[in-house]
Design a binder for these strands. Structure first.
Lengths: 341, 341
DNA sequence: GCTAACAATGACAGCGCTGTCATCGATGGT
DNA sequence: ACCATCGATGACAGCGCTGTCATTGTTAGC
């Protein structure tokens, strides 16, 4: 029956407000606000008094109230599929660091929780009134896109160069990457190539381009296998087993992601296949481990950090008041030839 | 006055407010609020009208305003060192899912950004007025602890059972884990054990317990090496090289974390050392890959998901109004014997 | 000495929402 | 028929802060 939840327990009475600080510092509330937000407008003498009052009371500003009136929450929300995915780590770190320097706070929202619909998620995110949004993959729901567009919220979509951006795009061409991967294998003279691929949109784009390039060159694609997301090393091992069953004479495997390639490496080793002599292996992503497997993994490197920095730069420009420019920034990629091909 | 056509949503660029919806649905603002937050208080007939008005206008509630007056933001913030760390993935997923079911939103805050001081971070987090906090490691700054205590905010510290919790603790004993790791190696008859350890507080706790147990048993600890955080597979490879330099006759290596163990596996392989015959390897964490390396990695498994669930349960109880009980929940750990020892 | 310009501070309103209490019929027990 | 109860709805105030404009010294310029 008690559907009115009791207010959050308030250990020592009321929480300290701006007015409390003002009273103690013997200034008006607005002056305290200025000390915090625009200190250059306040004399050093007054500011010192105010800061000491803040310290004494342990005052922590209420950004709900501040954001409500100023229409700026100083909050940027980034949607990541899950914290599991190491691909976005660098992006988020650099994004967060750069935003923090401009007094914006980056909070991450996991977008791939079970029972969570995309448009519901977006509404939940928007209800916090963030000043900007960073997406690590494009929105699939039209209504969700609509909402963002309608709100005119600064948005960066990243890790992809899709056709129809909401506003800004920082990423690279997955098709080009897929083709480059194929070309690399062709250059190395592989003849019967297997494709091990994870079932996600972007990987699929790379796969298609890769396959096309291979076929154009007249090289046999001996076998293909798809694995479900989220992918793990396990899928790599199982995947190679499946591929080899389909075509025991495979001389190379191209993987949609390093995690799979790592699994392939392990399975190859378990079967006594020597990489790259018996089997070439190519990954994608250049995760930390890729440079330290045995043999070291050839892969495609994407400048994850740079994506974060460019996203931050764009957002900060927008937040300074610049018009929504339709920036499309291709950070490219780099094929790292190591020991597995 | 009754025949004015419904206003076009948001024609003037103003964002839609509760009042706009109320006007269109011909009810009072508070009724719209109730439809959203306590629908059981509203008749189905009215609710339907209101929901259609919400849909027509694309209204998204402003939680800044709502939170300001109700003193509940329905926001839970979790501090994670960085999204890089896969250890917390499961915890966060389960935590987030459970909180979402109770209409709380989980946002993640990276706590290990450069130039970010702990107490500053805590203040930034608190300024959002979250309803609760989840920490993945204990606060080191006394002032930061103070702030939380003073505010009476529901807090769960996790992944550890430290002596002096702020409120609730969900984790396991790192000392016990370290000792168990040592005992496992002793049981397997290893004689000259190397320790490869990352420089973080918890790993250090495990190392000490591990070392003590080894020494008590009179087993030689041939060599020890520390690696900086954040650790990667690279440190595992380099680490084994260093250990072997110190003591070429090492017959086993205990690692503070699976990532290192994986690197050790690779380096061992590169040097033609057979695992576990020539060298036993033990990891910690049971990351996804651990079960799929070659050979499969023996390690210590922690129920990451359960930590998240227990944390959610505690918070939810607290948010329902329960008194701050000083819960300490030990989720334990499990030594997984696979092929590397 | 007088005005203009500026620096420093304050008063006030109101952001968008919900807690609280009030109101008004409908229902049911006696 | 009468009161108590309950379900459905609304009026109003105010959460804590900042945008805006007003006010008060203070200094520079002539």
């Amino acid at each position: 029956m008690s559907d009115t939840p009791p207010p959050i327990p308030d250990a020592a009475g009321r929480t300290v407000t701006l007015d409390d600080v003002a009273r103690i510092a013997k200034v008006s509330a607005i002056t305290v606000s200025r000390v915090i937000n625009r200190p250059h407008l306040v004399s050093e003498r007054t500011a010192k008094r105010v800061r000491s009052a803040i310290a004494r009371t342990g005052y922590v500003p209420n950004l709900l109230a501040g954001g409500l009136v100023s229409q700026r929450s100083r909050l940027v929300i980034a949607l990541v599929p899950s914290v599991a995915n190491p691909a976005f780590t660098e992006t988020m770190t650099h994004l967060g660091t750069r935003l923090a320097a401009a007094r914006y706070q980056l909070l991450l929202c996991q977008s791939e929780l079970p029972h969570q619909e995309e448009s519901t998620l977006i509404d939940a995110v928007l209800s916090r009134r963030p000043d900007a949004l960073v997406l690590t993959k494009p929105l699939s729901t039209p209504t969700a896109r609509q909402r963002l567009l309608a709100r005119g919220l600064p948005v960066v979509e990243s890790w992809e160069l899709n056709a129809d951006p909401i506003e800004a795009l920082v990423g690279f061409s997955h098709a080009a990457a897929g083709a480059a991967m194929a070309r690399h294998m062709l250059d190395h003279g592989y003849q019967r190539i297997g494709l091990l691929w994870s079932e996600d949109q972007r990987a699929e784009t790379r796969r298609r381009a890769c396959l096309e390039t291979l076929i154009e060159a007249g090289v046999a694609v001996g076998a293909q296998a798809a694995v479900p997301v989220p992918v793990g090393m396990r899928h790599g091992r199982e995947g190679l087993a499946r591929l080899l069953e389909m075509d025991p004479r495979l001389d190379a495997v191209i993987c949609s992601i390093d995690l799979l390639a790592q699994g392939v490496l392990a399975e190859a080793q378990a079967r006594g296949l020597r990489v790259p002599h018996d089997l070439g292996v190519l990954g994608f992503g250049d995760f930390e481990f890729a440079a330290h497997t045995h043999p070291r993994l050839s892969t495609v490197r994407v400048d994850s950090a740079r994506i974060g920095e460019l996203a931050a730069d764009h957002l900060l420009r927008r937040l300074e008041g610049d018009k929504p420019t339709s920036l499309v920034h291709d950070v490219g990629f780099e094929l790292l030839v190591r020991e597995s091909t």
